[in-house]
Write a protein that binds this DNA or RNA. Structure first.
Length: 920
RNA sequence: GGGCGGAUAGCUCAGCUGGGAGAGCGCUGCCCUUACAAGGCAGAGGUCACAGGUUCGAUCCCUGUUCCGCCUACCA
């Protein structure tokens, strides 16, 4: 039998068992294995990432689920992998190039991509190693990467499939452009931040009557140079006579029309007139479409004022000279200054607005006109809405369902092309023969300008010959796909799709998706759409959405705030199991998690408690063990099995409902406050009497219950449970792992109401005596003489039956007899929870403290009795409340009265004793 | 602007379909009792944000208010 150290030291234990598990292949699933499949696909972390607290929560929950299901005998598969994270990864490698004094343009596309692959080979495994440290029981033989060959094939198949169904198109639209990353972004990649800006009111004089003017308001005065019209509301009597006339656009030589537009214009806001800049604002773009206005862009890709375009927009030479090639932010005050000088600016006011920023680099996003690829999303969204409405996919907690549905019903086309190099290059080719006049190389390497009119050939592989002109020379579209395009296929691409593989047939649709709310739209919604479209099935049944982890002050954790809790150092300090238990115990639905290290420390102590219980157990197993049966089991054994049975039911039910917090609290309470505090204390004397009649069955029950408890705990605390389990004598299970032992299920024959009732009496009696000991300041080591009150035959029998336990736990000599038979003097009567005990007062004791306590108890009891009495006296209550409730109150009043009577006599007795003490 | 969630002990949070306010940490007192001082035993501490309403009865249901957080949105 192994000898355990006095304190649990998680560090070496964890590494050792993780290696053991992977060496034996316990995490590997197979389509051929028996058991109902249970599948989870990991939300693939960015390959650039390192484990943060959100990952830790996310993966702890997945691991609890998968370990639990595996132990239940399900064919459990957890597919791991990483995401190529286009922009993020490209940024990392580009920064590296900068330190080397070079750029990706200098390197060229092919060489750059090669560099990224090299980087990935070197550093891309970090997060995987960290997941292992967390104990994640993924099937690592199936590790996937979104740029793997198989997954890339899936991406091309899906792209071509959507294109052929008319669900992918290319066109020039206004898109969100990051001027730093130099790429388009989808709508949800733009994060809106409330900012306080200025609202400038600018006067636009009428073209033929310069004495009159329209005043427009804008937060972005620089974009006025690209205005194509001014809109007023067609039913606005102030202005509608002007519709069809022109205004002179200040700072330019252009005259632009006044149009009527009821969609764009809100009569109540500002002056009621709005400038329209189709090339730099989403609303204006649509208004421009409605009125067929020219799209005059004035910015370049870096969001600087483009000299060429300013000239084309007819901007006055003097103004141009000052703002050419300046960034928007630098040009803005200069334009305001010019407007002021020429008398066009009327007023300025502060204005609250939401500013869009790039979700990767926080640069202010610029709406820009650009040819891009889009997914026509409505036809995909409809079935995805229906699947959730019909309950084929269930959100947990279900409150997120409405969020999802609302977003899906209002969904916009998805811009999927990105102007970066790292990612899945779009499988579209332009024949240089057909598009000869259109394709222009603009940069030294790989930068081509492909106008929206260019005709692509879309196919899974590069075409050999152009079907129209026979040319064999092609240019592949330089853009790559949005990273989330490949993530959207993850649940089936990782299982072998588009091949009809055994894995796909066995493990798809997957069972549960565990994810944070932040990627509900980025990822979950798109997986549902793509899954339904390409597999005809939902990609998963349950979506468990967990909270965000914040710091103890409720702040979002971020490096810049310096409030980051690093999971790895937490695991080093407190152990992985304590960390996992903390995360799971705080994962209650509908609330963000505020993580405080004190909490982790508390659960570290819990791990240590379990550890020491195991040490106790191993020290006491010497000697024979009986195959215990209900008839041979002692009272503590029957009691603890009954409680264990209940706990097994509660934990399973909690896991079934994704209530990890409840599972934890049941385990914590049972292990610490029932198993350790009471059961182990109860059986100590039994075990000490090694040859006693109860020792053998108790040893058996002890190991049986503890082994079961370890299995119950294992999904949440895998390491310590394995470490201890391996130290137990296991007979036939030698060489196995707890990982693959069955998860405990309820054992009806363990249920024992009598034992639980007896325990209730025992617990109350012992507690009462302990209170008395404190009140009277009896030295802890000194034995007391205690009288147990017997109200009736049944109680007498119960107390007598557990007499030895009473004496051991209360450290006293206990005599059970009716109160009338107690010695009259020098017995302090105490009552708690309906149990009465009398303590024989001997020697120097502090009677005043006891008196105070009894008075306080009396006062509280009186007040309570009065309240209940009043309630029962009220005809409204007795007349209308359910009979059960009335009866409960009557019973309670009865008990209160009995207790008060006892307390009264106790107080009187105490006074006597106190007086007696003084007079003698 | 729209939607959602939260407000319970000093701190972090439970509290299921309305009937005697709970846990952990922290705090106080006594104990190094041979599993565990990362421990044991016993305690103190709450107008359940505020104001109404429904009910015999409200932390729980309804309405409104305040504060905090999140999601979403093109009001220039």
């Amino acid at each position: 039998m192994a000898e355990l150290e006095k304190t649990y030291e998680p560090q070496q234990v964890e590494r050792r068992w993780y290696q053991f598990w992977t060496k034996h292949g316990y995490f590997q699933a197979s389509a051929n294995r028996s058991g109902t499949p249970y599948t989870i696909v990991i939300p693939p972390p960015n390959v650039t990432g390192s484990l943060h607290i959100g990952h830790a929560l996310n993966n702890t929950i997945q691991d609890i689920l998968i370990r639990w299901r595996r132990m239940q005998g399900r064919n459990a598969l957890w597919v791991p992998g990483t995401d190529h994270a286009g922009i993020a990864t490209q940024n990392v490698v580009e920064r590296q190039l900068t330190t080397e004094g070079t750029t990706r343009e200098t390197l060229g596309r092919a060489a750059f991509i090669q560099r990224v692959w090299e980087w990935k080979a070197q550093s891309g495994g970090t997060i995987i190693e960290q997941l292992k440290r967390l104990g994640a029981s993924c099937d690592w033989s199936r590790l996937r990467f979104t740029m793997d060959e198989g997954l890339s094939k899936a991406v091309r198949d899906v792209f071509v499939g959507l294109y052929e169904d008319g669900l992918i198109y290319r066109g020039e639209r206004l898109i969100n452009w990051c001027p730093r990353c130099l790429t388009a972004l989808s709508d949800i990649e733009v994060q809106h931040e409330d900012t306080s800006g200025q609202l400038y009111h600018i006067r636009y004089p009428l073209a033929d009557r310069s004495s009159e003017s329209l005043t427009v308001a804008t937060t972005r005065p620089e974009t006025m140079l690209g205005d194509a019209a001014v809109a007023v509301h067609p039913e606005d009597d102030r202005y509608n006579r002007l519709i069809g006339q022109f205004v002179s656009l200040p700072l330019t030589n252009r005259k632009i029309p006044i149009v009527g537009d009821s969609i764009l214009v809100n009569r109540e806001f500002g002056s009621g007139a709005v400038k329209i800049t189709p090339a730099h604002d989403f609303n204006d773009f649509e208004a421009g479409e409605r009125h067929r206005l020219p799209r005059l862009g004035i910015l370049d890709l870096h969001a600087r004022l483009d000299p060429q375009k300013l000239q084309e927009a007819g901007v006055e030479e003097g103004v141009r000279a000052r703002i050419n090639s300046l960034s928007v932010l630098k040009a803005r005050p200069l334009i305001v200054e010019a407007l002021t000088q020429q008398g066009y600016l009327t007023t300025t006011e502060t204005h609250k607005m939401a500013l869009g920023k790039c979700y990767r680099c926080k640069t202010v996003v610029e709406p820009l006109l650009s040819p891009q690829w889009f997914v026509k999303i409505k036809p995909l969204a409809e079935p995805a809405i229906a699947a959730v409405e019909a309950g084929r996919i269930r959100f947990v907690p279900e409150t997120w369902t409405n969020n999802y549905l609302g977003w899906m019903r209002d969904i916009k086309d998805w811009c999927i092309s990105r102007q970066i190099w790292w990612g899945h290059q779009i499988p579209a080719w332009y024949c240089r023969g057909c598009n000869r006049s259109l394709l222009v190389q603009t940069g030294p390497e790989g930068t081509w300008l492909i106008p929206p009119e260019a005709k692509p050939l879309v196919d899974k592989t590069a075409p050999a010959r152009c079907p129209d002109c026979g040319n064999t020379d092609f240019l592949q579209d330089p853009d790559v796909l949005d990273t989330w395009f490949s993530s959207a296929l993850w649940p089936f691409s990782t299982l072998g799709w588009p091949e009809d593989s055994p894995d796909l047939r066995t493990f798809y649709p997957t069972s549960t998706l565990v994810t944070g709310l932040d990627i509900l739209f980025f990822w979950v919604a798109r997986m549902i759409m793509m899954g339904l479209k390409f597999t005809g099935q939902v990609p998963f049944r349950d979506v468990y959405i967990h909270a965000l982890v914040r710091d103890a002050e409720g702040q979002k954790m971020s490096k810049s705030k310096g409030n980051v809790i690093d999971p790895l150092s937490v695991m080093d300090t407190y152990g992985t199991d304590a960390f996992r238990f903390t995360l799971a115990s705080m994962a209650s639905p509908g609330r963000d998690i505020k993580l405080a290290v004190e909490r982790i420390e508390g659960y570290r102590n819990f791990a240590n408690k379990i550890w020491n219980a195991a040490r106790f157990l191993l020290m006491n197993l010497g000697g024979p063990r009986n195959a215990a049966t209900p008839s041979t089991r002692s009272f503590p054994d029957r009691w603890i099995l009954s409680r264990l049975n209940r706990t097994i039911g509660l934990v399973n039910a909690a896991l079934e409902q994704y209530r990890f917090d409840q599972a934890c609290s049941h385990l914590y309470h049972f292990i610490w406050h029932e198993y350790c505090d009471w059961y182990l204390e109860l059986i100590k004397p039994v075990l000490q009497d090694k040859a006693g009649p109860q020792a053998a069955p108790t040893r058996q029950t002890l190991i049986e219950s503890f082994e079961c408890l370890l299995r119950l705990l294992h999904p949440i605390m895998p390491f310590i449970s394995e470490e201890i389990w391996q130290a137990l004598p296991r007979g036939a299970e030698e060489g196995q792992s707890i990982t693959i032992r069955p998860y405990p299920t309820m054992q009806p024959h363990w249920d024992d109401k009598d034992a639980e009732a007896t325990f209730g009496t025992l617990e109350q009696f012992v507690t009462t005596v302990r209170i008395g000991r404190v009140l009277l300041n009896y030295p802890p080591g000194k034995m007391l003489t205690v009288y147990g009150a017997v109200k009736d035959q049944g109680e007498g029998t119960a107390l007598t039956a557990v007499h030895s336990h009473l004496e051991a736990l209360s450290r006293s000599h206990v005599q059970v007899r009716p109160i009338d038979a107690w010695p009259r003097a020098q017995v302090l009567r105490l009552v708690t929870g309906g149990i009465t005990a009398g303590l024989l007062v001997e020697g120097e004791v502090d009677l005043q403290k006891a008196l105070d306590r009894i008075r306080k108890q009396t006062d509280e009891g009186l007040a309570e009795a009065k309240r209940v009495e009043g309630k029962l006296g009220s005809p409204e209550f007795t007349g209308k409340a359910p009979a059960v409730v009335v009866a409960e109150h009557k019973q309670r009043l009865q008990r209160l009265r009995e207790e008060l009577a006892l307390l009264g006599s106790s107080e009187a007795q105490l006074r006597e004793m106190a007086d007696g003490g003084r007079s003698s």
